[in-house]
Design a protein around this nucleic acid. Sequence first.
DNA 1: CTGAAAGCGCTAACAG
DNA 2: CTGTTAGCGCTTTCAG
Lengths: 336, 336
Amino acid sequence: MAVRMKDIAEDLGVSLMTVSKALRNHSDISQPTRDRVLKRMRELNYQPDWIARSMVTRRTYLVGLVLPDLMHSFFAEVAKGVARKLQPLGYQVVISDTGEDGEVEQRQVEVLVNRKVDGLIIASAQRSGRLEMFQALERNKIPYVLIDRMLAGAEAHYVGVKDDDLGALATSHLIQQGCRRIAHIRGPAVATGVGRLRGYRRALARQGMEVKPEYIASGQYGDNTGYEAMQQLLQTNPRPDGVFCYNDPVAAGAIKAILEAGLRVPEDIAIVGAGNVHYSDLLRVPLSTVDQSSTAIGETAAELLSACMQSKTPPSPKRIFIPPRLVVRDSSRRRE
Amino acid sequence: MAVRMKDIAEDLGVSLMTVSKALRNHSDISQPTRDRVLKRMRELNYQPDWIARSMVTRRTYLVGLVLPDLMHSFFAEVAKGVARKLQPLGYQVVISDTGEDGEVEQRQVEVLVNRKVDGLIIASAQRSGRLEMFQALERNKIPYVLIDRMLAGAEAHYVGVKDDDLGALATSHLIQQGCRRIAHIRGPAVATGVGRLRGYRRALARQGMEVKPEYIASGQYGDNTGYEAMQQLLQTNPRPDGVFCYNDPVAAGAIKAILEAGLRVPEDIAIVGAGNVHYSDLLRVPLSTVDQSSTAIGETAAELLSACMQSKTPPSPKRIFIPPRLVVRDSSRRRE
DNA sequence: CTGAAAGCGCTAACAG
DNA sequence: CTGTTAGCGCTTTCAG
């Protein structure tokens, strides 16, 4: 069927080995022979069988990308960044959507490991402290890079923002806009959720403002949860005049709830999200948010992983922090 | 390193073949032996080496999913549907984002074919008439299913809506809402773009309404293009009172342009999009749209492909049409 | 510089 | 029912 090295070798009257070496630019082969072989390869449109090659080299040039939710455009953008960097190097990216479920994630990672991926990039849905999966990866010497969500205790490579800073940045902005009763719709119990909450607390504390428990509502990561959490916050008395939301979808849901209640954004309640999803600008009220440079995260993680896969000895864990960037749109603009 | 069949065989004092057969539930093996083998496999946590297996079976259990844009949540949803169906069958899905570029698509498909995927699901960015890629797939006997965008002339499996019907449905709805000057922001020159335009024309013709060339603006597939196309439409005189947009992102951009011009949606101009992206409900004006059952498309395509990959002889091309469903929200509601 | 030998881990085909 | 033989297409090792 397809052309094999053997065919080319016989065709040219050389040995199979000569062909193999010529293909891979091995040094111990004469220029004329190499040229002759390469020329014939091109003519016959020879394509190396990577399966056969993998069998002996034990490398697949497959990389797993494990994400909580592809529908969240933040992660779709990360995926683009990863693919853009890795494909030119000959890697194929296999995406796994875990649906923000730690158990599913563990199974998916196992599948990818059985698939013999050369490395993994993971935005983990593991609750903090659940390190088994990563320990297993280390035992098996499979290089991996965490993105977006750092795992306390994991001696792993990480690329993403410092969530404390992100939370503090968003919250401080609300304070500057004149908000005095600032609430937070918090995310899941992963690093991002926990860190942003911590940043929110830190910013309030720094201003000597009180952190009221009833002002911390539990959303998750989707717009429907933001909608519900906001309805709950609207019941408090006095109600908040500013809300920092875990992410943009949650913020979009929150805005919907506020408008339905007959209140105005930002006049009655100012809103800030996080993630800068690409449609933020098109929402009911254009959404203020904190940009995390999703594409850069993907690209940086890809570069880091590629370095790990190259080097024989695992490099010491690197943490690359991307500075969060405030993007002010209408949803929080109360002062000029 | 990892446990191999050979290890288990020696461990149990049977031949390698016995182990191999037991694993795959071959019939000619006694129940006791099978049990003994399987038990030991579990104990040693044996994982078959799929690369070695692929080498001889010539199947990789890899499926390529080729999409124009992962950021468009319609396609992200399709991807979820595909993965949900295919993963339980042991397939791994490899997603390729072509950026709506036919050339990139061709290269990506080539890469996937070299990767020896067992099959492909493609929402193609090829301009109509560009069939080479598909002919090559057929020559190589690689089963594939087209989704979302049918290709005229391709004798291929297809899952998606009839775009003519979709366009007619949206346009008729605008007519029913009392719009009399209906414009269209058209998409790229792929089946969806062409078909929706045709449906738009058909609906107008059926009502004896004139199709004015200046009412057909060329958007592409992103919100920025919708924004620009709408600005152009606003220059026409008289300006349209209803616009059917190629897809939801385009519609979102159009709404932005209208509001910025100081006009109201839907009172001055009613808008309908297509695709029912998940955030449609959260936009400036909640967006009326035509739902295409993205997840169902993904799942159905996956099932169809899986059938093709199973059967030895290629089944005759099947076309599965999913009925488009109108979702009316505020952006087009002018009458109760 | 070139090539022969050995084998990666598994399965298909057939022999006992 | 069990096992033997012969590869899949390639690379690694080592001898010419």
